[in-house]
Simulated scan of single mutants.
Amino acid sequence: MEDNIWWTRKARINAESRLLSNHHCLDLLLLWYSLIAVFVSIWLLAYVDNSKQVSVVFTCFSVFILAVTLFGSNARFAHRAAQFKDNYISLQELYFSIKGSSKEDENKHRLEYKRLLELAENHEPIDDTKALVWEWHNAQDKNNLTREPKKQHYILLCFYYLKRYLLLAVLFSLPLLLIYVSFFGCLPS
């Protein structure tokens, strides 16, 4: 059971980190969309007389900002990250408690572990994969680890990061694409 608690704690630490990273990226995306909208609005008001083009661009930016804002408020990344942090701290306390206890307390510890698991949402499988790969490559003594990453773990991790960074690249470049499309004659006048 010690091993389950240890790995669960490591996965929950990664879940907190993932959620905080998502929160940070969402904040940056919202700031980016807002800055681009302000910049384009000033530029359009000063240099473009075509009101249809202005309407289309502003409507698109409004939709971008609305979508990011709604997604961010519904995802509650920071709140969920705080719950994971509380949970992995409690798991650490349970881990230390088990280390210094006798076999008679095993049932009590099992019930406490179950209770702690129920207090927070479950982490994503990628959080466990990241924990497994990270711990394997950073362990001073690999003999102390009970799990070893396989080829599929590395592949999953590569796909996760590839998907994440591609999505971020698309989301951050979307306003620039809209500006390009609208100002180089691709939108009807």
Rank of each mutant, 00 (worst) to 15 (best):
A37P: 01
F84R: 04
V68Y: 09
R80H: 04
L26K: 09
E121T: 13
L30R: 10
N87H: 00
I89D: 02
K130H: 13
A78Y: 08
F58E: 15
E121P: 08
S101N: 00
Y47H: 12
V38D: 01
E106H: 10
F61E: 02
S102P: 03
H24A: 13
F71D: 07
K52R: 14
Y88T: 00
N50L: 11
Y95V: 01
F39P: 01
L145F: 05
W136M: 05
T146Y: 09
K151T: 15
F64M: 03
R115W: 07
A75V: 03
K103S: 09
V57P: 01
F39N: 04
L45K: 11
A131Y: 02
V57W: 04
L117D: 04
L45H: 12
L94V: 00
E124G: 04
P125E: 12
F84K: 02
L119H: 10
H79Y: 12
L31R: 13
S51N: 13
G72W: 05
K114V: 13
W43Y: 12
E148Y: 15
K52M: 15
H24P: 06
N87E: 09
G72D: 02
L31I: 14
K85F: 05
L26W: 12
K108Q: 07
N122C: 13
V54T: 14
K52H: 12
F64Q: 00
V63W: 00
E112Q: 07
S51I: 14
L132P: 08
A81G: 04
D86K: 08
W32S: 03
T69Q: 09
V56R: 06
D127G: 06
H23T: 08
C60R: 01
T59D: 05
S62Q: 02
Y33I: 05
R115P: 01
F39S: 06
L26M: 14
K52E: 14
N50W: 08
E121Y: 12
L119G: 13
L117Y: 02
I65Y: 06
V48H: 07
H109I: 00
R147D: 15
K142W: 06
E118L: 14
L117W: 01
T69I: 07
K114A: 09
S62T: 05
K151Q: 15
T59V: 03
D105S: 10
V133C: 03
I89V: 04
V68M: 02
K108R: 12
N144P: 07
Y113L: 03
A139T: 02
E148C: 13
L117C: 09
D49W: 14
C60I: 02
N122W: 12
V40S: 09
V48T: 11
R115C: 04
D141F: 10
K108Y: 11
L45T: 11
L45Q: 06
S102A: 07
E112V: 08
W136F: 11
F64S: 00
D49I: 10
E124F: 10
V63K: 00
H123A: 12
